[in-house]
Design a binder for these strands. Structure first.
Lengths: 212, 212
DNA sequence: ATGAAACGGATATGATGTATCCGCATCGTG
DNA sequence: CACGATGCGGATACATCATATCCGTTTCAT
């Protein structure tokens, strides 16, 4: 609860409103954080972010106590947008198609955001607003997967628990050596999706999802 | 060419044979390197390796100028064994099955060897003996893929260049949070392989392999 | 026995990221 | 306008950590 307040809506509690320039700078920092984390990943320094924002380091550290605080603010937003996309997908008729489209859209975002990818990889983020957003996405995916199964277009034995590993796999392709701006991940997503479709010749899958 | 000699067969050039205890220690270090790199990855310190071998740091640094030298020795061996497996696979009748089995075998090794996984991920190793071994594997894979295509069991448009990304994808699953000793990667390999089989309903793949 | 070879491991070195501190600039209210 | 209060800048102290060396001690081999 100690770090939570940083960079938050100052309406709550006894926090006074920021001076106008300070508020502007806070936005600049957020924007710089988005850009820098997307381009260089989470290992980027708050000093990097500050420089990118055209501000001094001290300014950044006053608004956000540490890198994690800023990252949390930046990526909660990103995750919420993905959750929204999943929610929208639930409305489509063809459930498998909706699932496929959602995956493509979410991964599209990841493709342009190294920081987001790193975040999804490592951080089993504890409490934080991130965890909440992530849970929301999971829930929507459950719906998506459930509907596809019900429509009989999703291969027997595939569950929501498979979604994260699949995303992780595509993410791995994005991180491959020479092809930073490449689109080749779509190729592999297509292959996986074909392996995910219900099909008479598909044999039962091994290892019932002991995945997360 | 400067680091090349380290830990090598001392027969060549004017190098005198090692004292018996020294030779023994060299083996101990190699073995410790295998175990430590496999368990803790490439970021393990030569100090770690030394301790694991029950030796002092200095001893390790005398035999291997730096971590890279030791890693090269350790993993060249590993890669060569994989290359051998690929070579053997070429002899089987069912080319697709052979390819699948080879992938499973190679990934099996990776599953038990975090260092190997990290090595395949990052290092576009330059010259080194590793590069040679890796090239060998690539060559064998070309054969495997070629035969499967010829037999018509491999999906249209799949090439040798797809193998590395596929391995990378499975590797990503192995690195997932809670499931260190898990076997769930086999599940995803099965899915991908099903997406890789020749099938009338498969649509053409996007993005002709601009992968490595 | 004795010189050469090898060992041990404390520690110097260097690289890197984090976060503070405080003199100076800017804001905004009276 | 003027004068606190608030915010800014960024050099730098601090901490962490892997790397690699050095040399007094021990072991080998003749």
């Amino acid at each position: 609860m100690s770090r939570k307040e940083a960079g938050q809506d100052p309406v709550a509690a006894g926090a006074r409103p920021l001076r106008r320039d300070a508020e502007l700078n806070r936005r600049r920092i957020l924007q710089a954080g988005r850009e820098v984390f997307a381009a260089r990943g989470l290992q980027a320094t708050l000093n990097d972010v500050a420089h990118h924002a055209g501000l001094g380091v001290g300014t950044v550290y006053r608004k956000f106590p540490d890198k994690q605080a800023l990252a949390e603010a930046v990526f909660t937003e990103e995750l919420n947008q993905i959750a929204a996309a999943a929610y929208k997908a639930l409305a489509e008729d063809d459930a498998f198609g909706a699932l496929a489209d959602f995956l493509e859209k979410a991964l599209e975002r990841a493709a342009h955001n190294r920081g987001l990818r790193e975040l999804m990889r490592h951080h089993t983020f504890e409490d934080t607003a991130l965890a909440q957003a992530r849970r929301e996405i999971t829930t929507q995916c459950e719906g998506l997967v459930g509907r596809a199964r019900a429509q009989g277009t999703l291969r027997e034995g595939v569950t929501e628990a498979d979604i994260a590993p699949i995303a992780a796999m595509i993410d791995a392709v994005m991180g491959l050596p020479g092809e930073r701006p490449s689109e080749s991940w779509r190729r592999y997503l297509a292959i996986i999706l074909d392996g995910l479709r219900a099909h008479p010749e598909h044999t039962p899958l091994p290892a019932p999802g002991d995945a997360l």
